[in-house]
Amino acid sequence: MSQTTTTAAVQSACPECDASVSFSRAPLNGQVTRCSDCRAELEVTSVSPLTLELAPEVEEDWGE
């Protein structure tokens, strides 16, 4: 999985469609984002190296 780090943005490839997913600030582990190309919901599973995975579906005990 490609990863590019600059002072302006951090980016990685969407695991679903391979489009570039960028973060304007340093992402945190567990952060949820959405691929602007395929709309897949993604989760940061590692920040070094930056790794994105498809976010899990809603689980039974999730809520507010």
Binding site: N29, G30, V32
Partner: peptide
């Protein structure tokens, strides 16, 4: 503490 860092947690 969190398990998913959503918009609320970031805010």
């Amino acid at each position: 503490t969190y398990t998913r860092l959503r918009a609320e947690e970031r805010l």
